[in-house]
C-alpha cells in the first residue's frame, strides 16, 4: 500500500480528506503532530470510501508538550455501495507534561454491512520504566525523554 506521511510541527489547523473513488484503491496515510511547542493544534482527517473493495489505513501520532493542546478528529465514512471496504484508524498520543491536553475523536459512519472498519485511540504519559532504564545507562532525564519521543514518532 502506498503510504503518505505528513508532519505538522507548529500550531495550526488542518483538514485532510482521503478519497477512495476507484474500486480496489488502497491508501495509507500517517499524520505526525509534533506538539512539543506551546499552542493549539487541530487536525481533521476524513477517509471517504465512496466505492467498494477499497482499503485504507489512517494513523495519527502526536507528542504533546507543556501547555500544548491537540485536537484530532478522524472520521471513517463508508457509503452504502462501498461494500467489502476495510479501514483501520489509529490515534496515539504521548503526553510529556501535566499541562498537556489532547482531544481525540475517532468517528465511524458506516452505511454498508459487508465491511471491516475499526479504530483505536490511546493517550498516555511516557513510560517511567523506559525513562528509568535509559537513565541507568547514563542519560539525563531530558535526554531520555528525547530519545523515547524520537523512537515513538518513528522518524
Amino acid at each position: 500500500m502506498r503510504k503518505i506521511v505528513k508532519k505538522y510541527s507548529k500550531p495550526g489547523k488542518w483538514k485532510v480528506v482521503i478519497l477512495f473513488e476507484k474500486r480496489g484503491e488502497e491508501k495509507e496515510w500517517e499524520g505526525i503532530i509534533d506538539a512539543r511547542g506551546e499552542g493549539e493544534y487541530e487536525l481533521l482527517v476524513v477517509a471517504d470510501h465512496r466505492v467498494g473493495e477499497t482499503r485504507g489505513r489512517v494513523t495519527v501520532k502526536t507528542v504533546v508538550g507543556r501547555n500544548a493542546r491537540v485536537k484530532i478528529r478522524g472520521v471513517i465514512k463508508i457509503a452504502k455501495k462501498a461494500q467489502e471496504t476495510e479501514n483501520f484508524l489509529e490515534m496515539r498520543g504521548l503526553m510529556l507534561s501535566s499541562t498537556s491536553q489532547v482531544m481525540a475523536e475517532p468517528e465511524l459512519e458506516i452505511e454498508a454491512n459487508n465491511v471491516k472498519a475499526s479504530h483505536a485511540a490511546s493517550v498516555g504519559p511516557v513510560d517511567s520504566e523506559q525513562i528509568g532504564y535509559l537513565r541507568s545507562r547514563g542519560l539525563s532525564e531530558a535526554e531520555a525523554i528525547d530519545k523515547i519521543v524520537l523512537g515513538w514518532l518513528g522518524v
Binding site: V102, E107, L108, K116, H119, S122, G124, P125
Partner: peptide
C-alpha cells in the same frame, strides 16, 4: 447503519485513555 461518535478529552498529561471500536458483519 452503524456509527460511533466518541469524544475523548484528556486535560492532564498523567492520565490514560484507550478506545477501540470495530464494525463488521
Amino acid at each position: 447503519r452503524s456509527d460511533t461518535y466518541p469524544n475523548n478529552q484528556i486535560l492532564t498529561g498523567s492520565s490514560q485513555i484507550e478506545h477501540e471500536a470495530y464494525v463488521s458483519r
